[in-house]
Design a binder for these strands. Sequence first.
DNA 1: GCGCCCGCAGCATTTACCTCA
DNA 2: CGTGAGGTAAATGCTGCGGGC
Length: 280
Amino acid sequence: MGLDDSCNTGLVLGLGLSPTPNNYNHAIKKSSTTVDHRLDPSLTLSLSGESYKTKTVEMTVVGAGDQICRQTSSHSGISSFSSGRIKREREICSGEEEAEETTERVVCSRVSEDHEDEEGVSARKKLRLTKQQSALLEESFKLHSTLNPKQKQALARQLNLRPRQVEVWFQNRRARTKLKQTEVDCEFLKKCCETLTDENRRLQKELQDLKALKLSQPFYMHMPAATLTMCPSCERLGGGGGAGGGGGTVAVDGGAATGPFSIVTKPRFYNPFTNPSAAC
DNA sequence: GCGCCCGCAGCATTTACCTCA
DNA sequence: CGTGAGGTAAATGCTGCGGGC
């Protein structure tokens, strides 16, 4: 992630406010679903955002029959699905049933097969994807973080999974990516905050030193030039105009030639958002 | 053109299962 | 062996968007 990536988000770090990065986390957590309306400082974690539109695909909900064959686990590995999401189940499942003969792949289960116990409580068993399946899904995710129905279908067929499972996997995968990115960004912002705090502290101290210097040498202007002190950090002559500063804040001048000792100054205030190398 | 409804996809959040220390 | 934490598959509810009317 480049620094610019996280800095073009309208995020503002304000010095002088108590740095509480945890608020950031909270904000992200609560900005649910209204991605477009984020006004709070936030990081936009945009994924590739392929947009596609599909037509309704009709399917027949197949009855029982598929078996779970787990390669690496000793559990039965039957995945169950609540029947409440019929809409979701209305996906193309053609071809899934073709995979019955495979000996090594996970095969999807069906709603009707989902054993409910006597009380009718569905027993949700967790499917564990094989390494092969995970690897292929990962590969696919690298190519596209979202899938169109055809891709989903093809992938599902390839993996002997139901399209819904592929879809869920991609959803969860996107969520994990986003979470990871959020953590990274949070760390980055913490560092930025620390850096800026340090910088501010340093500048405040520098200002105090300059003020003290000015007080101790009130008539320095009449002294020979050789005795003038030079600011060690910015190579600006001490006692230059406008060193008064207001209320503890450090004025960052643009190097305008106003006083008798005006020198072109280096840009002193460093903004981690524009100076990535120095920031973190 | 505009508003309404519908279907769909994606997301955030939650739940539940599984593994492992 | 029991347990808690962490990972993750799956469920649920909501929102935004596009298309049809």
